[in-house]
Amino acid sequence: MYEILTVAKKEFMDNWRNKWIIAVSSIFMILTLVISYFGSLRSSGWQDLEATIGGMMSLVQLLVPIIALMLGYAAISGERERGSLMLMLSYPVTRLEVLIGKFLGLGAVLAVAESIGFGVAGGVIALNVTGVQWGDYLVFILSSILLGLVFIAVALLFSSIFKKRSTSLGGAIMLWFLFSMIWGIILSGIIIARYGFEVFTDPDWVGPTWYYAASIINPISAFSVLVSLNVTPVQTNVIRMPSFYTTPLMLLILLAWIVGSLLLAHVILNRQDL
């Protein structure tokens, strides 16, 4: 157990020393404030938190996965390339413990950065508006952290599959494109091909189940559905939410991504020669 914590602590302290945590916190804070103050076209000045969350959704969906992938893509492959992975694994620590330690350490980095960034921004907004829904905001922050954890786990998987920093970076970027854009485009493309453009403007149209199911395999969509269900109705990649879209299912999907990625990374890493 202490081995996991030792690895986690090192990852966290590395990102504390190199100012990543401060940099990422600042980015989140500034962008949240900008969205809240300038985000509304209809009125000028501060929007309340609920409206701000709506505006922050696309920001979080783009930025959190990128930051998580950047944090994690070299965590294994970088150490392998440098040669320090061999020395680390000559100590009484298993490959699974290294993976979990890195996941927890990097997860803590992102969680702290999101909490500080969104938290401070939320505090500033709360000073300027009335009727603050702190509970909703907290759920939003926690959901964003969960999205970040998914992409850290996926980054660790890519870092284990590819033996070089450069290839694991390439893999991470491809994955980001897949889930940020290509997944939605492909699914929409199939819908358009079969049902025509009109369905996207028809509020009463109900699509086939496979479409809704395939949509939420994408963790970014699962995240936005989670926020929609619990915080504020936001634009999701899905046209309309069917009844099987529930909070437990979304949580399950996101957790499955984390556990699945780490387990697969473990299987792959265990078979590799150093």
């Binding site: 590395d14 020393r17 190199n18 440098r82 040669g83 320090s84 061999m86 020395l87 000559s90 100590y91 009484p92 620590v93 298993t94």
Partner: peptide, 19 residues
């Protein structure tokens, strides 16, 4: 794990963390 606890190892190309 037990065995690695008993061993001290100096790799051929030893590499640490620059920071």
């Amino acid at each position: 794990k037990r065995i690695k606890k008993m061993i001290g190892y100096l790799p051929e190309k030893v590499a640490f963390y620059d920071n």
